[in-house]
Design a binder for these strands. Structure first.
Lengths: 118, 118
DNA sequence: TCCTTAGTTCAAAAGTTATTGAACAATTGT
DNA sequence: ACAATTGTTCAATAACTTTTGAACTAAGGA
């Protein structure tokens, strides 16, 4: 079971920009970037919308080549395609993520988290 | 006569990305970047669509803070807001333009130009 | 003044994207 | 085998965006 992903050279600039031009998806990408290395499943993003709606947005990100989705059991592990994006559009992802990090207009993931203290 | 523009701090990341995520507008921005310094009027872009349609796309770019439009007589002189975009989203415009420059999928401005020879 | 050039506005139509809920599928734990 | 968990698909709808043409405005030149 593998989901369809574009190859690196099939990734389209205007499509990537269009896909990132949605606050929900930009929030997903920002969160993925903040947890890079840690593969996340879809339910991490439930703060941002309904299950169905996230399925839709995550599919858009995958189809545009922004994320990679691995099927592991009943979960989908989602990661940023940083290397491919960087090869194709050098510096783009970094500048988008850097700008997104301090964007108060974006919805937050994990807003409803239980604070873990020392 | 001045047209409404957002101030630098009113420029929204997701809006800029959404606006750039349209091939016609990305082609406009690529051309503006290639002619930086030279202020261009709307009719330079007629290769990309009808007068009415360009009016619409150029308004989107202006309202998002990507371009500045100056009214000079019966013309509108359009320039990239490079400084404001760079201040707000460092590196973003550069990486987008660099990627757009070698994007064969984007429509070309000036495709129907008369070749000027030595 | 009248005509042309440059561009806008408006309303309609066409097309696209986002959101929803109900039903489904597949895996995992008991 | 059954129930719970994780996520998808489908069809409907709502909400937006793009494109168009006709009518318009404003400046500039003859």
């Amino acid at each position: 079971m593998t989901l369809p992903h574009p190859t690196a050279d099939q990734i389209s600039l205007s499509n990537v920009l269009a896909v990132l031009g949605d606050p929900t998806r930009l929030a997903i990408v920002r969160y993925l970037a903040s947890k890079e290395g840690v593969p996340l499943n879809c339910s991490q993003f439930l703060d941002l919308g309904s299950k169905t709606n996230l399925s839709y947005h995550l599919a858009k990100l995958r189809e545009a080549g922004v994320t990679r989705t691995e099927v592991v059991g009943t979960s989908r592990l989602i990661t940023l395609r940083r290397d491919d994006l960087n090869a194709r559009f050098p510096g783009l992802l970094d500048s988008v993520v850097a700008a997104a990090v301090d964007d108060p207009a974006l919805p937050a993931v994990g807003a409803s988290e239980i604070e873990v203290r020392a």
